[in-house]
Nucleic acid binder design. Structure first.
Length: 574
RNA sequence: CGGGGCGUAGCGCAGCCUGGUUAGCGCGCCUGCCUUGGGAGCAGGAGGUCGUAGGUUCGAAUCCUACCGCCCCGACCA
């Protein structure tokens, strides 16, 4: 491609709306333009990068035995009513009514459509297993889209669905996808981890998220430094040490005056105790019900764990005003003893001795409280957020917390959708059975953003070669010289003839601009034809990543560059 | 939806508080000269319903009201 003919509008200045680096560089580099909130046009360069990801995904999906199809973006409400998600999905599902008053929605995901297809077209166990996928634009009406391609409302997603005869077979399909995902992200050149995850609104029994490690990530992960354990903090199980930590004599419960003190730290200082001696009582709205959650004073409640323990659909931390309005309880002085609402406790709380907690009476706390003796919660379980001080649930090794960008998510769905939608096949005994399903997503456009978050410097993007919209950028720095231009033109053709993807900068621009743009858009190899060619008949090849430059004879240039591209590409095989 | 901020040329911004001739600046764009290895220089030029509607006023980018859009924080979320 000749740069002079390409729509590639780079800018010097950073648009004010962009917060994170991938968003800034995608705008500055002329990859994307915003149409409206969370909705972007992919310019030629941006589309090229997305296609690169798409192609890798496609190859690995096919290798894993999945077949590509393409489903409609517009979906009828009736299908969503069958699965129950017309009610459950909430405002993120963009709904509308057509001229015939038929209710419809824009597809945020395609479980309903694919399950409908399966129940029509798959009748026999002989047709199974079956895996189908598509790469398509999805729409989710995010409350707050942000960070450019990282969290748009419209985005390109690969979604795959598997249908199996049994739970065991479905497990095999899941494993295949798990392997395929590893290959995909390895081939994309990303630093990533697969982590155990919560299943969210998609539902299902088991799931892994694929996380690109980057500081701008919206999720927090916990990773074991010793073994391969990794999990989203929403899910990360906490294993308490075997021995009881607290020793010493059991005290009797005592009421103490703590005027004007609500925060754990304040009361702790006043009573010369540690926050870890406290039982903190947090109030949540759990599907309209008011629930008190007990954790140790220095811990945080993990709402997703709470949601799962109580089998709730919605969990929200209640603010003080709301709590008081609803319960008339003395906010700030709450404690588990004689509390007139449902109380659930983190497992750790039950091991504490001689605790301090609110007295459910203004200006008073209790000391010497014994869980189990002085109160018994309705339910106990793992409810707190894991910390770096906890030990690995798998090997008891040390843990590390880190941020991640979710680029893929795979779910073992089971029969949730097939049962709801009556999607069955006949097994070998002629019995009707529900399909055992799995679903597998990759945020294709998000992968591009994540790759940039992970691979950039002060000058711009540094694409891993497999994702680069072009492999080589060829600079002609002598437009006025027939000699140089002739050589550059020739090299452009020679490279193309060798199958190298090359962007030929033949613009009438000064060298400085060309260098800056080349750095900004992140093409891995830069080839320069200029002064050095005129003087010595040599061209320069520079690696965007490390800045290393080689000078080679013009006659060898095409072969040397092609060789470098091939060698570099070979590093990314899965 | 709650809190905050912003809408002035393609982009980034000033002007608004304290209303008053032709609304500025930088980048980009067009023409010419000159220049050509890290976003050059000079000269000339094009480009604006000041987000929209209404109001106050002799007079509104500027003050008031409503609406629309965008960004940030929160809740929410693959």
């Amino acid at each position: 491609m000749r740069y002079s003919q390409m729509l590639l509008p780079t800018t010097k200045e950073t648009p004010s709306e962009a917060e994170v680096v991938s968003h800034q560089l995608l705008l500055r580099g002329g990859f994307i333009r915003k149409l409206t909130s969370g909705v972007y046009t992919y310019l030629p360069l941006g589309l090229a990068a997305i296609r690169k990801v798409g192609q890798i995904v496609r190859e690995e999906m096919n290798r894993a035995g999945a077949q590509e199809l393409l489903m409609p973006m517009v979906q009828p409400a009736d299908l969503w009513r069958e699965s129950g998600r017309w009610q459950k999905y909430g405002a993120e599902l963009l709904r509308f009514t057509d001229r015939h008053e038929r209710e419809s929605c824009l597809g945020p995901t395609h479980e309903e459509v694919i399950t409908d297809l399966a129940r029509r077209e798959l009748q026999s166990y002989r047709q199974l297993p079956m895996s189908l996928y598509q790469i398509q634009t999805k729409f989710r009406d995010e409350i707050r889209p942000r960070f450019g391609l990282m969290r748009g409302r419209e985005f390109v997603m690969k979604d795959a669905y598997s249908f199996d005869v049994s739970d065991e077979a479905a497990g095999e399909s899941y494993d295949k996808m798990y392997q395929a995902y590893h290959r995909i992200f390895r081939r994309c050149g990303l630093d990533f981890r697969a982590v155990e995850a919560d299943t969210g609104t998609i539902g299902g029994s088991f799931s892994h998220e694929f996380m690109v490690l980057a500081q701008t990530g919206e999720d927090t992960l916990v990773i074991c430094e010793q073994c391969s354990y990794a999990a989203n903090v929403e899910k990360a199980m906490i294993v308490l040490p075997d021995e009881c930590l607290e020793t010493g004599e059991l005290q009797a419960m005592r009421k103490v005056e703590t005027p004007g003190m609500k925060k754990v730290e304040v009361v702790a200082e006043f009573l010369k105790a540690e926050p870890a001696d406290f039982i903190k009582t947090m109030v949540f709205f759990v599907d309209e019900e008011v629930v008190a959650v007990l954790v140790r004073g220095d811990r945080e409640v993990q709402p997703v764990k709470l949601k799962n323990l109580l089998h709730a659909t919605e969990v929200e931390l209640a603010d003080d005003d709301a709590v008081f309005k609803k319960t008339k309880l003395p906010v700030g002085y709450l404690g588990p003893i004689d509390l007139p609402i449902k109380v659930v406790a983190d497992q750790e709380v039950m091991r504490m001795r001689n605790c301090i907690c609110g007295a459910n009476e203004k200006q008073y706390h209790l000391t010497g409280v014994q869980p189990g003796r002085d109160f018994i919660p309705a339910m106990t379980g793992d409810l707190r957020q894991i910390t770096a001080d906890d030990s690995c649930p798998a090997c008891a090794g040390p843990l590390k917390l880190t941020e991640g960008i979710e680029v893929g998510h795979i779910f073992k769905l089971g029969t949730a959708y097939s049962e709801a939608m009556n999607a069955t096949f006949q097994d070998c005994e002629g019995q009707a059975k529900s399909f055992v399903m799995g679903c597998y997503g990759i945020g294709v456009s998000r992968v591009v953003a994540a790759a940039i978050e992970q691979n950039h410097d002060q000058h711009g993007i540094i694409f891993p070669l497999p994702l680069a919209p072009f492999q080589v950028i060829l600079l002609n720095l002598g437009l006025n010289s027939e000699d140089i231009t002739g050589a550059a033109d020739q090299l452009y053709q020679d490279l193309q003839a060798r199958g190298v993807e090359v962007l030929y900068d033949d613009r009438d621009e000064r060298p400085g601009s060309k260098f800056k743009d080349a750095d900004l858009i992140g093409i891995p190899f830069r080839v320069t034809v200029g002064k050095t060619y005129e003087k010595e008949g040599k061209i320069e090849i520079r690696n965007r990543l490390d800045g290393r430059t080689e000078t080679v004879d013009f006659d060898l240039a095409a072969d040397v560059v092609t060789g470098m591209v091939k060698t570099e590409m070979a590093r990314y095989t899965a």
